[in-house]
Write a protein that binds this DNA or RNA. Structure first.
Length: 266
DNA sequence: TACAATGTTTTAAG
DNA sequence: CCTTAAAACATTGT
């Protein structure tokens, strides 16, 4: 599920617990989610810590807490992860891999496929995994020149696959990449290095347009994007291009199902 | 049954 | 050291 805007939505779900202490936690210690951290360290540092704030960067989430020192909790939602709030009395179910209990609510991280992940750091300074991040798509550092350099560096693979690379386009996922290429009128199999200057300009605009639009809808209250987006056609069999009315095609590109409109994308 | 699912990481090869 | 493609990961739903 989670791409840029879904991640932002889930981040805000846990805002309900801001300013309050974590009284205890529950976790499945042998879960794959903890392959990058020590579950015992979570047990040691989270209980008694106050949830102070959160941030998102692409698909990465950071929750910061305070106890004797700062506690940095990094989450990635993988393919099926979600954050939600349960009422007092809730106990961890099978797919609830990390559960933070507070006096008035329970903060739950569920992930059935376990492709997500948890990281932990304790100390004054932000850990490397949060400090060393590429320019966010909706930040001023994300320029057309930056995009051009990234496409040049990965000029051989299909543009669809390059849009999925998080070092270049943090937060983009399968549906957003298809939406962007559809909007820019670019065929997803084209090698990234084959785009003309005009196509790169269109791509740059489409990347930002789709990210902003997704943030205003999905990211705000999980509402669907506008009705004329490819989003509404891509998952149903026999879907049609919202712009041309012509049939859509489905291909496997860069290991992912890709939906595109041959009448519009060249 | 077999395959696909809004994602990374690892492996192996060039 | 860098880039690229494919397999692996764990579970559910069609």
């Amino acid at each position: 599920m989670p791409e840029l805007a879904e991640v932002e939505f889930f981040r805000k779900e846990w805002n309900a617990g801001l300013g309050e202490d974590v009284t205890r936690i529950a976790l499945h210690p042998r879960s794959r989610l903890f392959r990058r951290c020590d579950p015992h360290a979570l047990q040691r540092h989270l209980p008694g810590a106050r949830l102070e704030g959160s941030d998102a960067h692409g698909k990465k989430l950071l929750f910061y807490l305070q106890r004797e020192s700062k506690v940095w909790l990094g989450l990635h939602l993988g393919m099926t992860g979600k954050l939600w709030v349960a009422p007092v009395g809730y106990e961890a179910q099978k797919h609830d891999h990390l559960v933070l209990f507070q006096r008035d609510r329970v903060l739950v991280f569920s992930d059935s496929r376990q492709f997500g992940g948890v990281e932990l750091a304790v100390g004054e300074d932000a850990p490397a995994w949060w400090r060393e991040l590429p320019p966010a798509i909706l930040s001023p550092e994300f320029t057309e020149e930056h995009l051009t350099r990234f496409l040049q560096r990965h000029r051989r693979p299909a543009i669809k696959g390059v849009l999925l690379m998080q070092e270049g386009f943090p937060g983009l996922g399968n549906w957003m990449a298809d939406e962007i290429l559809w909007r820019a009128g670019i065929k997803p199999v084209r090698p990234a290095g084959s785009l003309s200057a005009g196509e790169r300009e269109a791509l740059f605009q489409a990347v930002r347009f789709v990210c902003r639009g997704a943030m205003k809808t999905v990211g705000k209250d999980f509402r669907d994007p506008p009705a004329n987006w490819l989003f509404h056609q891509r998952w149903k069999k026999g879907g049609c291009c919202p712009a041309t009315g012509r049939p859509l095609l489905y291909d496997r590109i860069a290991g992912r199902t890709t939906c595109w409109s041959p009448a519009r994308q060249h």
